[in-house]
Design a protein around this nucleic acid. Sequence first.
DNA 1: TCTGGGGTCCTAGGACCC
DNA 2: TCTGGGGTCCTAGGACCC
Length: 428
Amino acid sequence: MKQQIFALVDCNNFYVSCERVFMAEIRQHPVIVLSNNDSCVVARSNEAKALGIAMGMPLFQCQRLVEQHHIAVFSSNYALYQDLSDRVMTVLSRFTSTLEVYSIDEAWLDLSHVPAEKLETYGQEIRRRVLQETGIPVSVGIASTKVLSKVACELVKRHQVFQGVLNLFAWPEKEVDAWLAGIAVEDVWGIGKRSAEKLRPAGIVSARALKQSDHAWIRHYLNVAAQRAVLELQGVSCLPLETRKKPRQGIMVSLTFGRTIEDLRELEEAIATYATSAVEKVRRQGSRAMQVSVFIHTNPFDRRVPQYARNATAALPAASAFTPDILDLAVALLHTIYVPGYAYKKAGVFLSAFQTQEVIQTDLFGLFSQERYTMQERLMRVVDEINETWGRNTLCFGTQGMKRPWSMRQLRRSQRYTTRWSEILTVS
DNA sequence: TCTGGGGTCCTAGGACCC
DNA sequence: TCTGGGGTCCTAGGACCC
C-alpha cells in the first residue's frame, strides 16, 4: 500500500493574526486576545510570548506587563475568527480532495497525490495562497502520521530556518530523532501533563524517549491513547483523516456572568438565553434533543463567599428542537436546583440524546403528530432566518429578558469586519 | 476587584441478565 | 468450610484537545 502523506496546516497565533489582518498598525506590535469576560489570555503574538505572557494567564496577573510594553489587548471576536477560518479552509480545500478541518485554526490535508520531491514546494504554495487570499500566516508540517505532522509544525514554529514548511520525509531518521530529543514529552499530541508525570519516573521525558519506548508496555502502563502516540511517532499511522463531519453528541452553552447573580429571575434569563442558543445549534446540525441538563455554580476562585454547585437533568417526552419545549424544561430544572442566598457566577445548558430530524416519534394520543412537528419546524426556521439576517436575538423569547445586565464584559472587541455591513472596514 | 468555553474518547465499576 | 462466571449496558470521572 502506498504511504499516506499528512500535511498539517496550522494558523500562526490565529486570533492575533485575525486582528492584524484589519489593523496594519499592530502587525509589528505585541498583541494578546482575551477569553470571554476579558478574563484570560487565549492568544498571543510572538512578541507577547517573548515578553513572558503565558497562555491562559488571567489578565490581572499580567496587567503590569501590558502597560509597560503597551501591549495591544482585544476581547475575543468569534464572529470574525470563524469567518476568517472558513475562508482559510476554502483555500485549503483547493489543494486536496481530502481535508479534515480539525479546529478553528488547524486542518489536515491528504497530500498522497503529490510526488515526494515536490512536497516542500507544494507546502510553500499552500502558505503563499492562504496568506495572499486571507492575510493569515500559516505553518505546514508534512509527515507520515498525524502525530509526526504535529511535531513538524511545532518545529516550524520554533525554527525560522524552515521558512514555514517542514517535510519530515526529506530528512534522515537520525536528524529527526535529534529534533525529537528537544521536544518535551508533554508536547507530543495526545500526551498531557498527567501522563508526562507518570512517564518521568520511567525516564521518558522527551519525544524521542517516547518514540523509543515499547508501545505495548506504554499501553499497559498508561492507556491506549498513549500507545497510539508511540506508534505514530514510529511512523505507524493509527489516526486516519476524518473528513466526514460527525454530528455532535452533546451541545453545551455555558458562560460566566459579567457579574454575580443572586436573583432567580435573572438566572432564568441567563438559562433561557443559553438554552435558546443551544437549541439553535442543535437545529443547525439537523438534530433534535431528548435530554436537557442545567447547572449553576458560584465563583470557585472566591474563597470568601459560600460555595454552591449543582446540576439537574431531565428527559423530554419526545425529542425536540422546538425552542419553547427546551426553554420550559430548562427553566423548570433551574427551579429544582436554585437556592437563594448564593452569588452565582456561572450557568450552563447541555443538550444531548440526539435524534436526526428525519425520525418522527409519534404517540398514541397525537400529541407528537407529524403536523405538529412540521408546524414547529416552520416556525423555528423563520425565527432562525430572521436572526441570521438581522443579528442574533432580533427575535427572542420573553424569558430571556431584554437588558441582560449580567451578560459578559467585552470592552475591547474589534469590529465584525466581515460579517456585519455596519462594521465594515472604513478607509479614510 | 479581576481566573474561558466546548468538545471527544477511554476506563472502571455497578447493575443486570442468563 | 465451601456460595459461578461471563457478557452487556450504562454512568461517572479522568485525561486530553483546541
